[in-house]
């Protein structure tokens, strides 16, 4: 069973505020969805062998965004830096 408190706990881990009605709806829906996911318990274990290769390129300096471009979408900046919330 997923209850109200569990939804609030996960929301706090994910740093997402929910309103009361959302928390209520999510508790019921998560119950349905997580029960549905239970079927994964029956899946046969897979061979962990992978066919993946690392892909590297030389670590060369190349043109990137200018400081101005990088800051253009920031809601708040100060002295050419991003401005985040205060840290106490």
């Amino acid at each position: 069973m997923v209850d109200h408190e569990e939804v609030e706990h996960v929301a706090s881990l994910a740093r997402v505020d929910l309103d009361e009605a959302e928390t209520e709806r999510f508790a019921a829906q998560f119950d349905d969805i997580l029960s549905y996911f239970e079927a994964l318990d029956e899946v046969p274990e897979a061979d962990a062998a992978t066919e993946l290769d690392n892909v590297f390129r030389p670590d060369e300096v190349r043109e990137g965004l200018t400081q101005e471009e990088a800051l253009a979408n920031a809601p708040e900046t100060e002295d050419g830096y991003f401005k985040g919330p205060n840290v106490s």
Binding site: A74, P75, E76, F82, G84, P85
Partner: peptide
Amino acid sequence: DGVRYGPTAAAT
């Protein structure tokens, strides 16, 4: 997170 783009996190 409201720092590099989006609504601001700094002014709340």
